[in-house]
Design a protein around this nucleic acid. Structure first.
Length: 580
RNA sequence: GGUUCCGUAGCUCAACUGGAUAGAGCACCUGCCUUCUAAGCAGGGGGUUGUAGGUUCAAGUCCUACCGGAAUCGCCA
């Protein structure tokens, strides 16, 4: 596999800098900020000026002279204070385009250093229904796990169900108030519970808010939930049996939701699964002297010298004797360390929990449980409404995931019939296409902007089909497929690629940056970088499509073959990238 | 009040980590379908990057102080 055009030019520039006794790194070639002047540029002459004590333009001039006559360049010029503008030769572009055409992954390569990575995302609670906030974690997490796998890493994804802690106490006690006669509440019975669940998923989502609201106003009610939580964690049989029902009912419902989203998890573990590890882990922390007592609770101090404000200690065991969120997270790290042996664990969780993870990561590092550097919080912004205020679950009008999906699907179906598309298909096929388009719209609009704050949820944008959207990308694929179909009918075969017009060369260079986008997206754990690339591909193709007729009567046979090959290549890369 | 994150076109967001005249998409104008799907293409208007300083050849990006917003601040997850 050859190098990308950028890498090739980069090698030449670095060699030229080195030959001038300047640091090779300064020869770094980047995509030009002024694409109308040249596709690439090198800014090293400006930085070199200080070291060499010469004017940037003189250095640029010397570099240009070194590169003169190199067949890989079509044009080299100096702009402004000392920018070196670089245009690759047609021969280089042509060669690279044909290399890409025969590359199974259209130029993508595995990461240099392969790692074992655990991706923890989704994190839905047993007690609460899925809403748009979970959508974000799921879509980003799923994209990251696909990206990392594509790059060759060993990836294990875990949903990390919220099935432990106070919320379970809430559910148990509220259920007891509603149906006090259930056998689970009889302390004299410790086995032989019914297989059938006493509750449905709807019951669960109804019980929790009720209990939570009551407990907030009534200290006594809260105490009952706390006690139930402790008893559950201490192993009370009836409560454990209830918990198992809660979990299995939830998982069944969640599998449906995540299935509809096309999101996959390797592990469906929850917090409850690491319960047996907690006791020994806490004992070890105690023995090793990492813990101390404070106000009746067992804590680990995680403050560091450099903190401007002391970070509160991590609470391992509450006054009531219950394990908390941080405790199960630590135990989960231990579980993963011992069973999965990861180099890195990624937590795709909203930004509001930053300090919690900071506490857990520090504690893990301090106690020798897991290296601090291997734990990464992949944070994203809280979900806000159009008014910029937080999109609250309580505030009524909860947007359920399934509702969102069906709305997107409906919008897609309307668009299809309006535009008279897919009319030669039967109803079932059309519905399937509408579903895919709606899903693409949702995923892309969520992924394309990864800012860490101020995430605004806008249904209209999520289901829009014009401009920079998922459907636009699909549309590009559809157009290519249509050309390929026609070519097959006409008996035209793909051949050697020879980019002639600017739109063709541009498309090749865009396709050529695939690997760079993948590597960059991985390094930053930012899916939107990949989205940006795919959008660029679709846009470059659309321009090419409008500018270059592929199968016209007036197009020579070799040009037809070349453009057809370019179409095939583009489709392959689009398909690969959309699958991530 | 403390800490952390953020402030870019009317709206939603980029800007490859310090590079040239800050880019896309909506929305708004002007063209383009008897030719491979117009979910598209070509073009236009729209900006003192919250404010004020500082660092240097160069600042949306780095440092300081204000203004405005969000999250969080020991027994919820």
């Amino acid at each position: 596999m050859s190098q990308s055009v950028l890498q090739t030019l980069n090698a030449h520039l670095q060699a030229a800098f080195k030959a001038l006794d300047l640091p090779a790194e300064l020869g770094l070639v980047v995509v030009s900020g002024k694409p109308d002047m040249a596709p690439f540029q090198c800014n090293g002459a400006l930085a070199a000026a200080k070291i060499a004590k010469k004017s940037p333009r003189d250095i640029a001039q010397a570099v240009v002279e070194k590169l003169e006559g190199n067949p890989d360049f079509q044009a080299i010029s100096i702009g402004g204070p000392g920018f070196i503008n670089l245009a690759p030769s047609d021969a280089l572009i042509t060669k690279r385009s044909n290399d890409l055409a025969v590359s199974p992954l259209t130029g993508a390569r595995p990461a240099d250093e392969l790692q074992k990575i655990v991706v923890d995302f989704g994190g839905p609670n047993v007690a609460k229904p899925m809403h748009v906030g979970h959508l974000r974690s799921s879509v980003i997490g799923d994209c990251l796990q696909r990206l990392l796998r594509f790059r060759g890493h060993g990836v294990v994804s875990d949903i990390h169900l919220g099935d432990w802690g106070l919320q379970m106490g809430h559910l148990i006690t509220e259920l007891q108030d509603e149906q006090p006669d259930l056998v689970y509440f009889d302390e004299n019975i410790t086995s032989g519970y019914p297989k059938e669940s006493p509750v449905t998923i709807d019951d669960l989502s109804r019980l929790y808010p009720v209990a939570s609201a009551k407990a907030k106003e009534d200290a006594e009610r809260m105490e009952r939930s706390r006690t139930a939580t402790s008893e559950l964690q201490a192993g009370r049989a009836g409560y454990r049996a209830l918990l198992d029902h809660f979990i299995s009912v939830s998982i069944a419902a969640l599998k449906k939701d995540f299935g509809a989203l096309g999101v996959h998890f390797d592990l469906w573990k929850g917090e409850a699964a690491v319960d047996p590890l907690i006791g020994p882990m806490v004992e070890k922390f105690k023995k090793d002297g990492f813990t101390e007592e404070s106000d009746g609770a067992l804590i680990i101090r995680v403050a560091e010298e450099s903190d401007k404000k002391e970070l509160p200690p991590l609470i391992l065991i509450s006054r009531a004797g219950a394990a908390l969120y941080a405790t199960t997270d630590l135990a989960t790290i231990q579980d993963r360390r011992d069973n999965l042996h990861p180099d890195v664990i990624l937590y795709v969780v909203d930004f509001g929990q930053s300090s919690h993870f900071e506490q857990v990561y520090r504690a893990a590092g301090k106690t020798g449980l897991f290296p601090r550097e291997g734990l990464e919080h992949i944070k994203f912004g809280t979900v806000n409404g159009k008014d910029g205020k937080r999109f609250r679950t309580r505030a009524g009008g909860v947007m359920r995931l399934s509702d969102l999906l069906s709305q997107a699907k409906e919008a897609a179906a309307n668009r299809l019939s309006e535009a008279g598309l897919a009319k030669d298909m039967d109803e079932e096929e059309r519905a399937e296409i509408a579903r895919m388009i709606g899903l693409a719209a949702i995923k892309f609009s969520d992924l394309q902007n990864v800012r860490t704050t101020n995430y605004i949820f806008d249904l209209e944008r999520f289901t829009s089909f014009e401009g920079k959207t998922g459907p636009y990308l699909l549309y590009a694929s559809v157009r290519i497929k249509s050309i390929l179909r026609k070519a097959k009918k006409l008996g035209v075969k793909a051949g050697l690629i020879k980019p002639l017009k600017a739109t063709e060369k541009n498309l090749v260079l865009t396709l050529d940056s695939f690997n760079r986008a993948l590597a960059h997206a991985e390094a930053k754990r930012m899916p939107h970088i990949l989205c940006e690339h795919v959008y660029n591909v679709a846009q470059s193709f659309s321009k090419f499509y409008a500018d270059c007729h592929v199968l016209g009567d007036d197009v020579p046979a070799d040009v037809q073959a070349s453009r057809l090959a370019l179409c095939e290549l583009t489709l392959r890369q689009l398909t690969l990238a959309l699958d991530i």
